[in-house]
C-alpha cells in the first residue's frame, strides 16, 4: 500500500506536500512487532535497525516473553545432526535462521542452550567424560566451559553415560521456558559404572559440579541420544528398550516411569 500523508487538522485537500504521517505510537509498534512471523527472525533484526526506540522494544526484557506467549509453540528454525560421533552440524529449516557453525559433538539442546563436548567424540583418545563439557547459546554465541568433573583423572570411565542441559527451574516445574535462555541452568550427567548408576549435577549459579549421588540398586545401560523433559523430570533413554527412541509422549503413555529418588530425577524403564 502506498503511504498516504496523514491529513493536517482542519485541512480539506490532501496534497503530496502535506507533512508526513506521525509515527505509530510505541505501544502499537510493539503490537505490530509481536505479530511478526516467528520463523523469520531476520525481520525482527531489520526492525531493530529502524531506530533506537524500536531496538529498545525488541531487545527489552518483556518483548521476548510476550512474543513467545503470543506465538505459543516456538518455531523450528533448524536442528543439529550428530554425525556418528564426529563433529555435529546444523541444518537450517528456515531461510533466515542464522547459520550455526560448530566444531564439536552435540550431546543435548534445550531451552535455547546446547550442551557440547569440548572436542568431537571421534578425535578423543580418552574416555569422553575426561573432556569438559561446554554450554553454548547459539543465538548470542556465548560459551561457558564447564569445569572438570570432580573425579580423580582416569578413575571414572563409565560403560555408558548421557547428559542433559536444562533451565535451572525445570526440575521443580516452576518455569514456562518462555524467557529463561539467559538465566541459570543445570547440566545433569548420568553414568553407569562398576558402582551402579551415578549422577552429577552442574549448577551455573554455583559454577560447580555437585558431589555424585548414586542409586546402588539400579543398573541401566544408557543410550547417548537426546533426553526428554517430561513433567518435572528429565528422562534418559536406555539401550535395551528400543521403543524408547520414539516420541517421548508415547513412551510416557506406554511405560511406567521409574523414579530413582537417589538420583533426584526420573529414569525410564
Amino acid at each position: 500500500m502506498d503511504p498516504t500523508p496523514r491529513r493536517a487538522p482542519g485541512s480539506v485537500q490532501v496534497q503530496p506536500t502535506v507533512p508526513p504521517p506521525p509515527p505509530l505510537p510505541v505501544e502499537l509498534v510493539e503490537e505490530v512487532l509481536l505479530r511478526f512471523p516467528p520463523d523469520d527472525p531476520a525481520r525482527l533484526v531489520h526492525a531493530a535497525l529502524v531506530c533506537r526506540r524500536w531496538r529498545g522494544l525488541i531487545c527489552g526484557p518483556s518483548f521476548r516473553r510476550r512474543f513467545r506467549e503470543f506465538h505459543r509453540a516456538p518455531p523450528m528454525l533448524g536442528f543439529f545432526v550428530n554425525n556418528h560421533g564426529d563433529t555435529s552440524f546444523f541444518i537450517r529449516t528456515s531461510a533466515t535462521c542464522p547459520r550455526l557453525g560448530i566444531d564439536s559433538t552435540v550431546v543435548d539442546a534445550r531451552h535455547g542452550r546446547v550442551l557440547l563436548l569440548s572436542k568431537p567424540l571421534s578425535v578423543l583418545r580418552r574416555h569422553p567424560l575426561e573432556t569438559p563439557f561446554v554450554v553454548w547459546d547459539p543465538i548470542t554465541d556465548r560459551r561457558r566451559d564447564l569445569p572438570w568433573l570432580p573425579v580423580v583423572p582416569g578413575s571414572f570411565r563409565p560403560y555408558s553415560w548421557n547428559a542433559a542441559v536444562l533451565c535451572a527451574a525445570s526440575l521443580g516445574g516452576a518455569c514456562d521456558h518462555l524467557d529463561c535462555h539467559s538465566g541459570p541452568f543445570i547440566v545433569v550427567l548420568v553414568a553407569n559404572s562398576n558402582n551402579g548408576m551415578i549422577s552429577y549435577v552442574y549448577s551455573s549459579e554455583a559454577g560447580a559440579w555437585s558431589e555424585p549421588t548414586s542409586a546402588l540398586n539400579s543398573y541401566c545401560d544408557l543410550k547417548l541420544v537426546p533426553t526428554a523433559l517430561v513433567g518435572s523430570g528429565c528422562c534418559f533413554f536406555l539401550k535395551h528398550l528400543e521403543l524408547l527412541q520414539v516420541a517421548a509422549s508415547q513412551v510416557v503413555d506406554k511405560h511406567k516411569l521409574l523414579s530413582c529418588r537417589l538420583l533426584g530425577y526420573a529414569l525410564m524403564d
Binding site: 503511504p3 511478526f36 535497525l49 531506530c51
Partner: peptide, 23 residues
Amino acid sequence: ISEMMKGKSPDQIREVFNIKNDY
C-alpha cells in the same frame, strides 16, 4: 502493517512509517 514491512530494508521501513534514523 507487519506485512507492509516484509522484505523491506530498515531504510525503506523508516520511509513508510516516517521514522527518523537516530543511529
